[in-house]
């Protein structure tokens, strides 16, 4: 029986093995990091809605304030989706016969709510409170983007934990005067005045686990 020894050609495998032992773990981490991230799987989500409601028209062109429809945003954790009656405040007279609003009229007559599709949906283990942010000078557009330019509402932020933490650790670029929260075209001022504002408001966002995971 001849004993088995590695043939000389196997020496060629050595650099390949060394390369693989480094590349495979690095690739695995990078793959999970990017491909499992909300940046990849959630950002840009824009589901079709039962009524082709245009924020670009209502919030942009007509300039209706966010809080006219999402009326609970300053007082409670949730920014409410308006009931049909809020829509009908105007649409009883404005474009009352438009075929695009058939669903709305049906809802109004039957009393069944319109089944809007939720766009910004955090996992159940995350506690998020709208009023805590809006009343401290975090504007709508900081998280939701330029809704006033959207025909269909689209998720522009990844809503990942890293994204939340980025702002909680350094909020200065996202804090605006409290009377500006619903302004869509607000831009941060220079760093010095932003910091002054943060100091003035005494903004100290918590990064404890239990702040969001209760």
């Amino acid at each position: 029986m001849t004993r088995f020894l590695f043939p000389k050609t196997t020496n060629l495998l050595r650099p390949v093995l060394i390369l693989l032992s480094v590349a495979v773990p690095v690739y695995a981490v990078a793959f999970v990091w990017y491909c499992f991230s909300p940046v990849t799987i959630d950002k840009g989500y824009a589901p079709a809605q039962p009524i082709p409601y245009s924020h670009a028209l209502h919030a942009g062109e007509l300039g209706i304030d966010c809080r006219y429809c999402h009326s609970t945003v300053e007082a409670t954790g949730k920014a409410s989706i308006p009931p049909t009656q809020v829509c009908m405040n105007c649409h009883q007279t404005v474009r009352s016969q438009s075929p695009k609003l058939a669903e709305l009229r049906k809802s109004y007559s039957t009393g069944e709510p319109v089944e809007w599709v939720r766009v910004h949906d955090l996992p159940d283990y995350v506690y998020f409170n709208h009023s805590a942010h809006v009343t401290r000078g975090v504007g709508c557009s900081s998280c939701h983007g330029r809704v006033d330019k959207m025909e269909t509402v689209t998720q522009v932020a990844p809503l990942s934990m890293a994204w939340c933490l980025d702002c909680h650790r350094n909020p200065s670029q996202n804090i605006r005067p409290k009377d500006q929260v619903t302004r869509m075209d607000w831009q941060p001022a220079d760093a010095a005045s932003q910091n002054t504002l943060v100091n003035h408001y005494g903004t100290k966002p918590s990064t404890d686990c239990s702040t969001c995971h209760r």
């Binding site: 029986m1 001849t2 004993r3 088995f4 020894l5 590695f6």
Partner: peptide
């Protein structure tokens, strides 16, 4: 590996013996 009576044994132990001579 060196005492192996079959080619398969010699190969398997040979792989794990890392070419020890």
């Amino acid at each position: 590996r060196d005492r192996a009576q079959t080619r398969l044994r010699s190969f398997i132990y040979g792989i794990f013996a890392l070419g020890w001579r």
